[in-house]
Design a binder for these strands. Structure first.
Length: 269
DNA sequence: ATGGTGGTCCTACCA
């Protein structure tokens, strides 16, 4: 039985409930990982989402900012809310889901955006972003999860690591999300967990792919000044199980869209 | 160098 996992930064779940329905119609995911839900857990529209077919939910919320959730057609267990880089921001939730091959560990993350200036000495938001990634990588190393543990990491990692993950490598190499130091931090995290980029498994590195287009760019589609900030990573035992990946670009053209689009991966598990 | 849009919640702050 294939398992389809979708990750999506919705930029407010309360503003995007219709969109969630459209996503479900388009992709029929088994698991949906959300970021930037922007609502306290108590205000999370869990009933509406259950009615859409996702009664099993792992939610980490806070008022107005951040917020992540895992929505599932199948039961979730071992729900954990995790915090990195200091503070209690709701940016990381983990859970387990059963498959025919045993349990699969799911993580979804909303990595700090990092502000405007890519200088950790003068921009505390950028320093926090680097600390967040470094702490998380360190935790993964200390945890020493065996590489054979099937783990899927999803989310808005707010880093576009490859030259073909941005519309212009030359224009963005000094812009937050595509700087050398952020990419180095993201690479360290990826190596710490033995992860493989599941979307790039299917799309050659020569091909440009994006998951985010700024609200501030007029004609997002024509200008196509996108970046790939949203990722799905899998550990080695899942690599031979990878059966497909989709970026739902059309979602950026929906009415009142999120600035991110859903990214989906299918696993034959 | 600046401002462009959209979200939260009501005054700026964050993306």
């Amino acid at each position: 039985m294939p398992l389809k996992i979708t990750t999506w930064n919705v930029n407010s779940i309360r503003k995007r409930l219709d969109h969630l329905g459209w996503l479900i119609e388009a992709e029929r995911p088994d698991v949906i990982c959300l970021q930037e839900t922007k609502v306290e857990a108590a205000g999370f529209p869990g009933g509406d989402i259950a009615a859409l077919g996702y009664p099993h939910q792992a939610v980490a919320g806070q008022k107005g900012y951040n917020g992540v959730a895992i929505l599932s057609r199948r039961p979730l267990s071992d729900i954990e809310r995790l915090h990195w880089g200091g503070g209690e921001a709701a940016r990381h939730v983990a859970a387990r889901v059963a498959t025919g091959d045993g349990p699969l560990e799911l993580h979804t993350l909303y990595v700090p955006a990092g502000g405007d200036k890519p200088d950790p000495l003068t921009n505390p938001k950028f320093a926090h972003k680097l600390d967040y990634l470094a702490d998380l990588a360190h935790w993964w190393l200390a945890r020493a999860a065996a590489p054979e543990t099937p783990i899927v990491l999803t989310g808005d990692l707010n880093v576009a690591p490859l030259e073909t993950d941005v519309w212009s490598h030359e224009r963005l190499r000094r812009v937050v999300t595509h700087t050398e130091i952020e990419i180095a931090h993201l690479d360290r995290l990826r190596l710490a967990g033995h992860w493989v980029d599941a979307v790039r498994h299917f799309v050659p590195e020569t091909e440009k792919i994006y998951s985010w287009w700024s609200y501030r760019t007029p004609d997002w589609d024509g200008a196509d000044k996108g970046r790939r900030l949203d990722h799905v990573w899998v550990t080695p035992p899942l690599v031979p199980r990878l059966a497909g990946a989709t970026i739902l670009r059309e979602a950026r053209g929906w009415p009142r869209p999120s600035d991110h689009v859903p990214v989906s991966v299918v696993l034959d598990v």
